[in-house]
Each structure stands twice: as structure tokens, then as C-alpha cells.
Amino acid sequence: MVGCFACFKPAGDQEADEEAPLPSTSRRRGRSLRLPSCSSSNKGNQQADNPIAAASSSNVDSRARAFTYDELAAATENFRAECLLGEGGFGRVYRGRLESGQVVAVKQLDREGVQGNREFVVEVLMLSLLHHPNLVNLVGYCADGEQRLLVYEYMALGSLADHLLLDTSSRDKGNAAPEQEQRALSWETRMRVALGAARGLEYLHETANPPVIYRDLKSSNVLLDDALCPKLSDFGLAKLGPIGDRSPRVMGTYGYCAPEYVRAGTITVKADVYSFGVLLLELITGRRAVDSTRPTAEQLLVAWAMPMLRDSKRYRELADPLLRGGFPERDLKQAVAVAAMCLQEEASARPLMSDAAMTLAYLAEAAASAAASSSTS
């Protein structure tokens, strides 16, 4: 059980859109964010319904450190272009070095971007309470005036998407450039990444109490450290249970969202399981969840793959050509079978993440043994 998570009550049908204050780091340098208390007072129970409102008046320190804007500007050399790691709808991410010498990634939220103050507070709260080897570590945050910044551990190899989703112009014909083949992730690495992502979700769904629904699993949110260990990142859309809650707004990324969530806004941990199925399919095929450069019938990965997922004799057609058959046929079939189970139309038919992780642990171990044998032969 995650410390203090039992103090939260399940969020209701209505999601909070209002902005909530965080302690101003311009006056409270180095002070930790205050998180919801485990006290049983009536006031505390009322606030537990909304962790956003609770953030500003609770009594438990998190592990997240409060930074001033000046500290983070110095760490990133005034957000120099040379330090830019990437950018998205939330804003830009910079590589920085703290006074202690620690290398970090600094996310500077765009004040006019799609990720607002609510998502910022949710992410600070979630990552302050959730700790697992397959979740990115939040070092701290900055709420200095109108500035909103998040400081994470530095993930040296960037996102899974950077390494997996290479140019598609020639790979499907089996005539990719030599440098592209050299960059392609091995079967062993793909299974190891799949296992790490599954274990991260298993922790959120089955260890955290109440469960946490991630809502934004995708290859660009799976970060890799220098040992290719995967960690889930970007928790701005994460939501506490309960099972069967309905969300008035469908959040997430097109191509990864579960059908029941898109149709009716029904949000459960099984929606994350569906998203994991899409991610696993990306790892197997090397294709993007949505790829507008492909012919119309192939642009949506799940729709393209579904006929093959329903026929075990066609499983091999799903394998990324860049793998050049570098995998046991039996292991490919088991990996595809896991993806197919996760992508079931009915949420209740999808497996628990612990069940998926169990199979993937076997596949990752088998792939590692095969790789070790081939390297010594």
C-alpha cells in the first residue's frame, strides 16, 4: 500500500478544473510540498475528495523539493537552446545540472499550453507519493509566481518512441538502411521494456490503494535510462479510482484510448490495460499507434493489426521487419497473444497487469538467455 493513499476518497463524476495554489517557492526556498494528511478530521475528509484542493492545506511532507525559478534558470543556463531535450503540448524539457551536481530534466509548462495548473498539481502529488523502479522519479517542482516547472531524474536515452519508431518509408519492405537496422531495438530489449512498463502499471493498479489510473500510456511517455530501464512519466492526467468511474472529458492520446472510454467516458484500470496492449503492439511491430504517412487502412495500428490478432497463423506478419526474425517463433506468438488479450473490446475480458507482467517476465528472461548464448557462441 502506498503511504497516505488510503486517505484519499474516490473522485466523483465531476473532475476539478479549478486552479489550486501550491506553496510559493519564491519565498519558501527548499521547502517541501505539503500533501494530504492521514488525520481523520472532518475537514480533512472533505478535502480528501479533491487532492488538488487538499494540496495547499495538508500536513504531510513529500519527497519533492521546492525550487525557485532562479535556481532552475541557473541549472539550465537560462534555458539555453543547447539544453533543450524536447517539447510537446505541455511545454519544453531542458537538461540541467543542479548545484549539487545532479543532472536533471526540467519541464517548463507552457502557460498557454494544454497542460494547466490542475495537471501540474496532480503530477506533483502523484509522483511525490508513488515510488517504483519503473516510475520516473520527481526531484522537485517550482511554483514561483506564474512559473510552473517540474524537475525529474535525467533519463539519458530519452523516450521509447525515439528508439522504436524509426522511419517507416522502407522498413516494411525489408530494405531499411544499414544504420537504421543497427539502431533497431533487439527482441530482448523490447521484451525488457514491455516488462518494465507492465510492472509500472501493475504497481499503480494493484499496489496503490486506491488504484491509480494512468490515462496516458504511450511510447513517448516511456522513458529509458542509460541501462535501457523503462520508466513511466508524465502523470498530469492520472486519476485515482474507483472502478467504473465516468469522466466528463476524454483525456489521453488518440490511438491508445480504450473504446469504452472514447464512447462513454468510462474510466477504469482496464483502460490502461488497453493502452498497454497498443504499446506492446508498437514494440512487436515497430509501427506507430497512429501513422498518417501510411495508407488509410494502415494508419490506425490496432485496426490494421486486428485481422492478424484474430488468426494465430498470421502472428508472424506482425513482427517488425527490422528484427529480421531475431526471435523464437513461440515467444513472438506469446507476446502477440498478450497484446491481443489486452486489446479485447470488452474491458472485463482484459487481463490484470500482474497477469500480463508474469508472461512478459518469462519472455524477457528467455530473450536474455538467448542473447547471452548467442554472444558467447
Score class of each variant (00 low, 15 high):
5 F>I: 15
8 F>A: 15
8 F>H: 09
11 A>P: 03
12 G>D: 15
20 A>G: 06
21 P>F: 07
31 R>I: 10
34 R>G: 13
35 L>A: 14
40 S>T: 04
46 Q>R: 11
54 A>H: 11
55 A>L: 12
57 S>P: 03
57 S>C: 15
59 N>M: 13
61 D>P: 04
63 R>V: 11
63 R>G: 12
64 A>W: 01
65 R>L: 04
73 A>G: 08
78 N>Y: 14
82 E>R: 12
91 G>T: 02
92 R>I: 02
94 Y>I: 08
95 R>D: 07
100 S>N: 06
100 S>G: 08
103 V>K: 10
105 A>V: 02
107 K>H: 08
107 K>P: 00
107 K>C: 06
111 R>P: 07
116 G>K: 05
120 F>M: 11
120 F>C: 09
124 V>N: 05
124 V>R: 08
126 M>A: 11
126 M>W: 00
135 L>W: 02
135 L>D: 00
138 L>K: 12
139 V>W: 03
139 V>R: 09
143 A>I: 02
145 G>P: 01
149 L>A: 10
151 V>N: 06
151 V>A: 07
151 V>D: 11
153 E>M: 10
154 Y>P: 14
156 A>L: 07
160 L>C: 09
161 A>T: 10
163 H>S: 09
166 L>A: 12
181 E>Q: 14
182 Q>P: 03
183 R>L: 15
184 A>D: 05
185 L>C: 05
186 S>N: 14
192 R>A: 12
193 V>E: 04
196 G>R: 00
198 A>G: 06
203 Y>H: 15
204 L>A: 12
208 A>K: 09
213 I>S: 05
214 Y>T: 06
218 K>N: 11
218 K>H: 05
219 S>L: 06
220 S>F: 06
221 N>I: 09
227 A>F: 00
228 L>N: 15
228 L>V: 10
229 C>L: 08
229 C>D: 08
232 L>T: 01
232 L>V: 08
239 K>A: 08
243 I>M: 10
248 P>T: 10
257 C>V: 14
259 P>R: 00
262 V>W: 13
263 R>A: 12
266 T>H: 10
268 T>R: 02
268 T>D: 10
272 D>T: 04
275 S>D: 13
279 L>Y: 12
290 V>C: 14
291 D>F: 03
293 T>W: 04
296 T>S: 13
299 Q>H: 04
303 A>R: 14
306 M>N: 08
308 M>S: 15
314 R>L: 12
315 Y>L: 09
318 L>W: 03
322 L>D: 01
325 G>R: 14
326 G>F: 01
329 E>K: 14
343 L>F: 00
344 Q>T: 03
346 E>M: 10
349 A>Q: 12
353 M>K: 02
367 A>K: 01
369 S>A: 15
370 A>G: 07
377 S>R: 13
